[in-house]
Each structure stands twice: as structure tokens, then as C-alpha cells.
Design a protein around this nucleic acid. Structure first.
Lengths: 267, 267
DNA sequence: CAGCGTCGTATTGTTCTGCGATACGGCCGC
DNA sequence: GCGGCCGTATCGCAGAACAATACGACGCTG
């Protein structure tokens, strides 16, 4: 598991009031098969995918055969196992292209990256997680695989807290309570009071700041992008290394820049 | 339409010998609905998606309802139309994480970008197109939306030609003949003889070079990544602007670097 | 080498799922 | 107020998808 925030709650969410008349179980099974890759690393066997999707081997066989025919699944050359196919990237492209924010954001992010020289990210909220939609690396960012689609917990990420700061208290509480607030580094703030303190600071400053709460040696400044109704729809992050910056100076320099960038693509 | 290479041939390819016994039409319809976004810009209505997928409104309704429930489709806040959902990015992440090359390539690409200061891309071959799987922008790359999943024609892109150069002549001919060799800029080389000349040059030099064949003012040097059987499985690109470089110097400087980078992630 | 487990693949009759014609209410604008 | 188009809802029937089953290959392991 590489995407750390368990999307388990979402299944529950979806279950509650589905109109069985309109819900196609074949479609759901198909998607569950594709989601089977989230579990563990490396190509999967047919049986593994069947188990992950909670269907029998016959159903998995038909679904995988079809997906493979369509290009959404490929056979790995060496292991013979299955992995997501190239067509997936076509859907990624559609998502990015159709998204109301992304295209507007890309130039702003590029400029921000040029001004700061740091890694710049755009993330989108999804209840308990945020998900990276666009990433511009800096020079030395090599180790942390900076991939699109990576999820981070809302409650402990800078972007997540920036977006929480835009929500009414009740919604913040709901998210915090439903989150699995585990410790990722010795510096992760996991208690409710501490997190609320950070959120209040974000409301006051206009940006959120986290220091080594997710990765040691990394600090992040983030500001929320809002829609016409002032609801948070994205966050812009600037990440820096403690090796290069004093935390106070980092905030003073980056804070105004991310606020300005976020404001410029808000509705 | 923003992804220029028509993936029409693929439908033909898939059609030829499908085992109807194992092929689930509901799955195929579902994917066709998701592919409906490739056609035109902006959120789509239910009816538009139905038309694009060549199904009636009832089927589209059930499929879209299900996909929406699962998070693969979202309603656009302003227009009320449908667009790809956040869950798509989860599948992107799985694809990138499971791919045998990507994780190995990311550090190499980052280093290459640091050395050159130019835009660096990794693309994967898919018959008549290549598809960007990883992109590291340079400072001023802002206008051209540099999105993951973008497709380029194999025959006129630098990466595509670098990969063609690794294939036997018959396969190259097949791809060239099936391609729609339209002109994109006044400099696009569209005649078979000219393209073959470029491919032979790539075989000789170890890298391909294109100049303003896709975008005016842009030139690209690319080298192919090969697997154990010497088949091309990816290409590494370095793109530069004619405003900054003399074309000869660009080749001399970047050629050896992309070759070395490509070699270091080849099997 | 025989035996076992697990893999992917193929086949079949049955049943329940997905089909599609049809109908309803809301909204816009020629 | 009309006609068109939208999204939504309904329902009996056909047939698509189901699941149990069987087959051959491969890799263990005793």
C-alpha cells in the first residue's frame, strides 16, 4: 500500500442510498477489479484480483479478458501478471483536461515554481484525503516518487488543513473524527486540540504550515483555492527542505506567494 | 479534440478475434462512456455521452449513475454536466506505480532535467501514438499544457521516431502506412522518404531529432528505452526552444545525455 | 517421479441482471 | 403556451452475465 489513506469510508458512504434499480453490478465489479491494484505492489494474478474485488474466478476472468481487450489491463512481460493498461492514461488526460481548475492553474503553478525554486503541487480534496493532481518538481526532488494521484490524509497535510480552514467548524470536526489519525513521523500532530490550533492559525494567516509531519526534513506551505461559494476546491502547496531554509523565513517568503497564487485561480 | 492521434485503428484491432463468450458488453459500454470525454471540450450531458458511446439514453443513465456513485464521474458545479471523477486519478497512480519502468525512470529523468535545465519527458509507445507518462517542466514551460496522458503521433514525434528506429523495417512501414500523416506545422516532414531518412539518422546517431515539426520554435532530442529483447518500451525526450539554442549545439549537447539516460533504464 | 496446489483457460445450462421502449416533470427559448 | 431537450423514473421480457465445473500446464515438495 502506497497510497496511505484508506478509502474504506467511501465504500460505506456509497452504500447507503443507492437505487438498486439503476446500479449496475457489472460496472461496480469492473471498477473493483481495477481498484485491486491499490492493495499491493507488483503485477497481480487473476486470482488475486478476484479476491480483491470479492468475486469468483469466473467473473474475474470475463472482466479481465474484456478490460485487456480494451487496453485497460496489460500482461506484464516478465511475470505474466496483470497490471493497469495504457488506456488508463487517456482517462487521466480527460480528467485533467475537463477539470475546471487544472488548465487555469498550470501557468500559475509554473510561475510559482519559477519564483520559488521549490516543489509546487496542486491537490484536490476528497473528504478524508487530498489527492495530487499536478506536480512540478524542483531540482533535487528525486527520491520521493512524486506521482500524480498520490493521496495524503487531509487532517495532517498542509493542503488539507488549508482547505479545512475554509470549512465550517462542524464539517471540520466530522472529517477529523472520521480520520484515522495515526502518527507518520515523530512530529505529526495527532491530537484534536493541536490540529484545531493549526487550522485556526491557517484561518488567521491565510495559509497552512506543516513541518515534518509527513516526511522528515520537509515543510510545506499551502493555501486553499475556493469556488464562488467560498468552498475549498483545491490547494496549492510549496514544499521546502529544512536543509535549505529556516522555518520562519520559509513561511514569511512563501506564505504571501501561495496566497496570491491560490487567489488568482479562485472563482 | 486535444489528443490529436485518432485511436480509431485500435477499435479495429480489438474487433478482430474477440471471444464473444468472455467479452462483457456492459464493461465495454462502460468504458465507451468514459471515453466519450475524449471527443470534445467541456462537461458532457447524459445524451452526449450516450451518443458518443453509441448506446441509448437508458443504458447511459444506468452506467452514469453507477459511475457517479463510485466516484468515476462527477457533476460539474456550474454547468450541471458530467466530467471524469477524482477516482480516475487513483487508477493513474496505480498505473504509474505498477509500471515496470516509471519508478526506475523518475530519478534518472530528474537528474537529466537538472543537468540540462530543459523540459524532460518520458513517453510510452502505443502503436500509432506515443503517450506522455511523466513530464518534468522547465522554467518557462507554461503555455503548452503539459499534461500526463497527452498523445502524440508516433511518426512525427521525436520519441516516436526514436522508438521506430529500434523496430524492424517491416513494422516501421506498417506504422507509417497506417498513420494519418497530416501536417501540423510548415516544418512537419510528412513524406515517407523524408521520415525514413530521419529514422535512419536516429539509428546512426542513437537519438532522434525533430525541429518544429509539432510546435513552432520547439526542438526535441529523444532516445529509446529498450527491454531485454531490444524492443522499444519507452522514450526519453529533452525539449528546447530555438530562442535559446542553435540546433546543432542542442543536438551535440543533449544527444549523449538522452542516450545515456535511456541506456541506464533499459533492461 | 508422483502428488499436490495453483495457475490460466474453456464450456455449459440456468437465472437474474441489465435491456430499452415508454412515460413523467422541469427548463429553456425559438 | 408551445415544442424541444433535458434528467429522471418505471417495468416486463430477452438474453447477457452468472457460477459451477472441467481441463491442461506449471512449479513445488516430499
Amino acid at each position: 500500500m502506497s497510497n496511505p489513506t484508506a478509502p474504506a469510508a467511501e465504500a460505506v458512504r456509497a452504500e447507503e442510498s443507492v437505487d438498486a434499480r439503476l446500479f449496475l453490478q457489472t460496472v461496480a465489479r469492473t471498477m473493483r477489479v481495477l481498484e485491486g491494484f491499490g492493495k499491493k505492489q507488483g503485477p497481480q494474478s487473476l486470482a488475486e484480483l478476484a479476491a480483491a474485488a470479492e468475486i469468483d474466478k469466473s467473473a474475474a476472468q470475463r472482466i479481465c479478458y474484456t478490460l485487456q481487450t480494451l487496453g485497460y489491463l496489460e500482461r506484464d512481460a516478465v511475470s505474466g501478471g496483470l497490471r493497469p493498461g495504457l488506456k488508463v492514461l487517456d482517462r487521466t488526460f480527460d480528467f485533467l483536461r475537463m477539470h475546471p481548475l487544472i488548465e487555469r492553474a498550470v501557468p500559475v503553478l509554473a510561475e510559482l515554481r519559477a519564483m520559488t525554486g521549490q516543489r509546487v503541487d496542486l491537490s484536490l480534496p476528497d473528504d478524508l484525503s487530498i489527492i495530487y493532481a499536478q506536480r512540478l518538481q524542483n531540482r533535487r526532488e528525486t527520491l520521493v516518487a512524486s506521482l500524480i494521484g498520490r493521496r495524503l490524509p487531509t487532517w495532517c497535510s498542509s493542503g488539507g488543513r488549508a482547505m479545512l480552514a475554509c470549512l465550517p467548524d462542524a464539517e471540520v470536526d466530522s472529517i477529523l473524527h472520521r480520520s484515522d489519525r495515526r502518527r507518520f513521523t515523530p512530529h505529526t500532530v495527532t491530537d484534536l486540540a493541536g490540529i484545531w490550533e493549526k487550522i485556526r492559525a491557517a484561518r488567521r494567516d491565510g495559509f497552512a504550515f506543516t513541518e515534518q509531519e509527513w516526511i522528515m526534513g520537509e515543510m510545506v506551505v499551502a493555501a486553499a483555492v475556493t469556488d464562488a461559494a467560498e468552498r475549498p476546491v483545491a490547494a496549492i502547496h510549496v514544499a521546502g527542505s529544512l536543509a535549505d531554509w529556516d522555518d520562519r523565513h520559509f513561511q514569511l517568503r512563501m506564505g504571501p506567494l501561495v496566497i496570491e497564487a491560490a487567489r488568482s485561480i479562485s472563482a
